[in-house]
Amino acid sequence: MIESLEGSEVVDVTIIIDSLPSLLKATIMTLFLSCISVLIALVIGFSTALIRILKIKVVYEIASIYISVIRGTPLLVQIFVIYYGLPQIGISLDPISSGVMALSLNAGAYLSESFRASILAVDRGQMEAAISMGMTYGQAMRRIILPQSLRIAIPTLSNSFIVLVKDTSLVSVITVTELLQMSSLIIAKTFEPLTIYLTAAAIYWILITFFTTLFDKFEKRSSKHLVR
C-alpha cells in the first residue's frame, strides 16, 4: 500500500482485487490477439522472406512494397485504415478481425526481415555442402539451412513478439475490449487511473516476462550444439 503525503490512499488494494476478474478476462483477449496475430505474421513473414531470397518475379516486387509500406507507416494509422477506411470500399471487418489483420500485417513485415536476415546469416558453405551431396535446393533449405536460421532468428522473433503483445493495446482505439480498453472502462467507473493503469502495466509485464523466459529456454535448447 502506497500512501501519499496527506495520508489518503493513492493505490487501493480493494479496487485492484475487485477489478482483477475483468482485467484478467481482458488479458485473455490480449493473449488471443497476440497469439493469433503472431501465427499469421509468422506465415506472412516466412513466405515473404523466401520470396525475397528466391527473387521470385512479380511477387518479389509485391513483397518488397508491402514491407516498405508497413514499416514506413505507424501501426495506429494502419489500424484506422483497416477499420474505418476499408468499409468505404465495401470491406467491413468487425473490430477484432480488423485488429488481428492490422497486427499480423504489421508484425509480418518485421518478421520477414528477421527471417531473411537469419537465412542469409547461415554460412554459404552449408548450402554448398548440402547440394554437393546431391540434395535439391528445397531439401537443403528444409533440412540444413532453415533449422540453423531458426536458431539465429529466435532473439529477434522474441523481440517482435514482445512488441506485438504491447501493440495489442493500440487496438483499444477501435473498441476491442483487451487489457487497456478494459482498464479505461474500469477507470470510468472507479476514477482510479493510477491504480488501474499500474495494475494493467503489471499484467503486461508479467505476461512478457513469461514469454521472454520461454524464448530464452527455447534458445538455450536449440544452441546445445554450441556448448563445448
Binding site: 554460412d123 558453405g125 552449408q126 554448398e128 555442402a129 554437393s132 540444413i144 533449422p147 540453423q148 536458431r151 536449440s222 550444439h225 554450441l226
Partner: peptide, 14 residues
Amino acid sequence: TGFVFQSFNLFPNK
C-alpha cells in the same frame, strides 16, 4: 562425387 571442403562445412547443429 564426394566433395571435401577446405573449411569442412560440417552441419554444426548435427
